[in-house]
Design a protein around this nucleic acid. Structure first.
Length: 268
DNA sequence: AAACGGCACAACCGCCTTGGC
DNA sequence: AGCCAAGGCGGTTGTGCCGTT
């Protein structure tokens, strides 16, 4: 079907009230129409796109549909371990700056990352009975969750049965060891290092935030000493398929252990 | 087989920022 | 400098799917 013959209308300005705006899920036909219009007129000027396409959608709605779904670069599906790691790291640096975080995950949209955070990460906080923004939960992420993710990524990159995404990540990060990961991209890079103070991550392009524990000796997560109590207790049975590895980490037993740790005065 | 609940994701809403006039 | 429209962003809601009872 030629959308330009059937769908496009004249560029007569119309207010939203006049053109009874359509809402709700997009149809395949609407998608095709929007794609065709963007291919011709390009991204941006979304109100014009909405008008020119003949879609009874707002410019905002068109923009959202394009950015989150129709763009060729958009990647959907399981969030890989590497992506999980990046999300955790970047969120602890920037907070709910979803679009900024999304810039570092090619093909992922801010909406997707936001949804991931809400459904997976906040669920874990709920199970731990602490606020997702609380110091306790952030510390748990920094000193338990993230180091374990790093270990798993390294382990899987060394495994011959590593998933394609894992292998690709290993390629991107170059010489991968348990102690250092460097993730580079066009807009900056992420360095992950594990030392006597536990895992630390810093963005080369933004050094404003460092994860130095207030009193490191209280965090039983030293890979140097091997007394990785938290890791041992929280590791559980990881799966490395990029799926719900967190669920396996945060099983009931582990959550109980972590709760105990969070209640420890020394920890705070 | 039906009802229910939880989850994941798409889409909307409202506020803020930016740029043009 | 002030106004307005458009775009961007984060929060929230709606909906369909799937597993469990």
């Amino acid at each position: 079907m030629d959308v330009y013959e059937s769908g496009f209308v004249s560029e007569t300005p119309q207010s939203e009230e006049e053109m009874d705006v359509r809402k709700g899920p997009w149809t395949e036909e609407e998608d095709l129409t929007l794609k065709a219009c963007v291919n011709i007129h390009g991204e941006g000027r979304w109100n014009s796109v909405a008008r020119l396409s003949g879609l009874k959608r707002t410019g905002k709605s068109c923009r959202l549909r394009w950015l989150n779904y129709l763009r060729p670069e958009v990647r959907r599906g399981n969030i890989s371990l590497q992506e999980q790691l990046l999300i955790l790291q970047l969120h602890s640096r920037w907070g709910n700056r979803w679009s900024k975080i999304a810039q570092h995950l090619p093909g992922r949209t801010d909406n997707e990352i936001k949804n991931y955070w809400r459904t997976r990460v906040q669920k874990q906080a709920k199970q731990l009975k602490c606020d997702v923004n609380s110091k306790q939960f952030r510390d748990a992420m920094r000193y338990v969750w993230i180091p374990r993710l790093i270990e798993r990524i390294c382990a899987s990159s060394e495994s011959p049965s590593a998933q394609p995404s894992t292998t690709a990540f290993a390629d991107r990060i170059g010489n991968t060891t348990t102690d250092q990961i460097t993730y580079g991209n066009t807009s900056g890079s992420l360095q992950v290092s594990s030392d006597s103070q536990g895992a630390q991550v810093s963005s080369v392009s933004d050094q404003t935030d460092c994860y130095n524990p207030p009193h490191v000796s209280n965090y039983p997560n030293s890979t140097e000493t091997g007394s990785d109590l938290w890791s041992e207790n929280l590791a559980g049975t990881w799966n490395i398929d990029g799926g719900d590895s967190m669920e396996s980490v945060w099983n009931e037993e582990n959550i109980g252990f972590l709760r105990q740790q969070l209640c420890d005065d020394d920890f705070n």
